[in-house]
Design a protein around this nucleic acid. Sequence first.
DNA 1: TATTGTTTAGTACGCG
DNA 2: CGCGTACTAAACAATA
Length: 319
Amino acid sequence: MPRPGKNSYSDQKPPYSYISLTAMAIQNSSEKMLPLSDIYKFIMDRFPYYRENTQRWQNSLRHNLSFNDCFIKIPRRPDQPGKGSFWALHPDCGDMFENGSFLRRRKRFKVLRAEHMACKSSPMMHYFHHHHHHPGSKLGTAPGHHDLSAGPASAVGRLPPFQGYGGITCAQSGGFKHPFAIENIIGRDYKGVMASGLPLTSVMHHLGYPVPPQLSSVVNSMWPHVGMLSESMGGVHVPASSEYAPFGVSAKGLYHNANGQTLPAVPLPIKPTPSLGPVPSLTGLQSGPSQLCSSVSVMEKSDLLEGKGNPLHPALLLS
DNA sequence: TATTGTTTAGTACGCG
DNA sequence: CGCGTACTAAACAATA
């Protein structure tokens, strides 16, 4: 047990992997996406441990963002100048931490790309491509390897245009893409923008595209899995003796927080939230980590393909 | 130039 | 022991 006056656990390494920390940060944002710098900020704000050796862990964190398919990059809108993209969670990265451990995921989330070739552009895609062209796109500059087990997420976004619009997008729903499926709407350049776990309308709005009203209502109700984190300032208090249990789940092997300091980084149970605007403070703590974002790991892909098991899948949009 | 992003490589550890 | 995952280091490219 930590003693007062002594080194508190808050100065010790939190029992979370970089993936969980990053996911927390993203989840905690009102738009469910953050630029790199804000992810850093979130982590440093809440975990004193990470106020040191920043070079080291930030490098690791960036590595994780790039390397893991569960994170997707969302380009900035022209009216949101700044460096770097926004980072969001892939909607299918769901139960990564199902086992309650935030140090080791149950299973690495990996986007399947086997059927990405089947993806076709859609009217929506054309719209995007015509109105949101990215000269700086790295598309086609490198083939990337197609190793399912280790292929860098980014490789997916680098396929030549006619090899499909992003393995991530196609793979996650098994090839078939409704024209309005998020994947098709956003397109290859965005490494699964849709995926972000963002309400589609949020993404579209973010990118500066008009959002069909009917789509808006449908979509926004479809992403309840995007949970909220408690705002540390939000007035919600975790018991002083509470463990690092950010997901409201029995977190085995987690530390106690020494000084009874409230740990704000508490992902909330998912409740349907408006796609935009500030996030309400949390009110409950029952959700499991699996609800970081809803859904399925690579293991359940077959179910996904069948359209079962995950009612929230973007592929079901307007279908 | 500093930050951001991608990639490869090596090490450590837990689990079956 | 083999495998998968996590962490770290580092090289390097791209970009604001």
